[in-house]
Amino acid sequence: MTLASTLAAASGPPAPGPHDFNLPSILPWNGSTSWGVNFGLEDGFFISKPMVLVVLSLIIVIALFAAAARPAAVVPGRLQFAGELVYGFVRDGIARDNLGSKDYQRFVPFLFAIFAFVFVNNYYGLVPFVQFPVMSHIGFPLAIALVTWVIYNGAGIARHGFVGYLKHETVPGGMKGPILLLLVPLEFLSNILLRPITLTLRLFATMFAGHLLLVLFSLGAGYLLLHSDNPLAIPAGIASGILFVAISCLELLVMFLQAYVFTLLAAMYIGEALADEH
């Protein structure tokens, strides 16, 4: 018997994997309503947990910062201070540093929105009874990355014109001659086509891997402590539980860093598109 078949035959907790991210629908719907209206959804329609969490994140962000901005006191309270701290961090630490004092202000709302949105949806992964980072579903970071792609390319075209922007993004400054036959396609691929993909994969893969590790060690600890008869199960289960707590603490930092890095790269791409020279 091979090692793989032995492991497959052994009893144990279900192995975590991509299937853990395919959550069952909360509200399945076949496209028909109780009053006889059919919306033509032949394959049906459903509302899933990530959909609910995304809508809830919008409500949370809008409600929190609306409440923080409402007093507008000279001496801010705790909520206003926290709101101003986050806004100032994005405005001064990300937007101003990467876009310059001339252009940064008009892009602050967008950068602030994606930072807050990604931040909240990342931290769902550590909220009890929720425990699912929405950005571990690739469709959500892909949508934000595509919006970012449209904005930075649109800003560059508005500044330089369509042809001028293509030249700006694909022809490195000071480069001439036959080497451009190699550099121009590479620059076009890197700066125009691949950026939304790399933005998406960086955020998605980190959230996916982190959540998978948490599932692995939590399931392992539960099985080893509660269901295994092996004499080594208890110390192994305790070790698995400790690793679960340690990775959860690490995820507190990683989730913030991913929101920051995504917003920082968006600001860098916008700043590069607006710059006078590539």
Rank of each mutant, 00 (worst) to 15 (best):
82 A>S: 05
33 T>L: 11
8 A>W: 06
232 L>T: 15
196 P>I: 07
66 A>N: 10
53 L>Y: 04
158 A>T: 13
127 V>I: 09
269 Y>L: 14
73 A>K: 11
30 N>K: 12
11 S>Q: 11
234 I>H: 13
143 A>Y: 14
197 I>N: 01
91 R>C: 09
204 F>V: 00
272 E>W: 00
232 L>C: 08
174 G>M: 02
205 A>R: 02
22 N>R: 15
103 D>Q: 08
131 Q>S: 14
165 Y>F: 09
235 P>S: 08
219 L>M: 05
106 R>N: 15
38 N>D: 12
132 F>Y: 12
51 M>V: 01
259 A>G: 03
111 L>I: 08
77 G>S: 09
101 S>Y: 06
132 F>D: 02
58 L>E: 04
167 K>G: 12
202 R>A: 13
24 P>H: 07
35 W>V: 05
230 N>C: 08
152 Y>H: 13
261 V>R: 09
86 V>G: 07
192 I>H: 05
228 S>H: 12
95 A>D: 15
173 G>D: 06
131 Q>G: 14
59 I>G: 12
72 A>C: 12
11 S>K: 08
91 R>G: 12
124 Y>L: 09
43 D>N: 14
64 L>K: 03
91 R>F: 14
237 G>M: 15
173 G>W: 02
107 F>E: 04
225 L>T: 06
111 L>S: 09
177 G>Y: 11
255 M>C: 12
268 M>Q: 08
94 I>M: 15
95 A>C: 09
51 M>D: 08
163 V>K: 09
68 A>V: 14
7 L>C: 07
15 A>D: 06
85 L>R: 12
6 T>H: 13
270 I>K: 00
221 A>S: 04
179 I>K: 11
160 H>E: 07
19 H>P: 10
130 V>M: 15
262 F>M: 04
181 L>V: 04
257 L>N: 10
185 P>C: 03
68 A>N: 05
5 S>A: 10
224 L>P: 00
148 T>D: 03
148 T>W: 00
35 W>T: 09
208 F>M: 03
219 L>D: 07
170 T>V: 03
125 G>D: 07
273 A>T: 01
48 S>C: 12
264 L>R: 00
226 L>I: 07
2 T>E: 13
188 F>E: 02
190 S>P: 00
161 G>D: 09
256 F>D: 03
130 V>I: 15
108 V>G: 05
263 T>K: 01
101 S>R: 08
240 S>Y: 04
184 V>I: 10
59 I>L: 11
168 H>Q: 09
264 L>S: 00
195 R>F: 03
75 V>I: 05
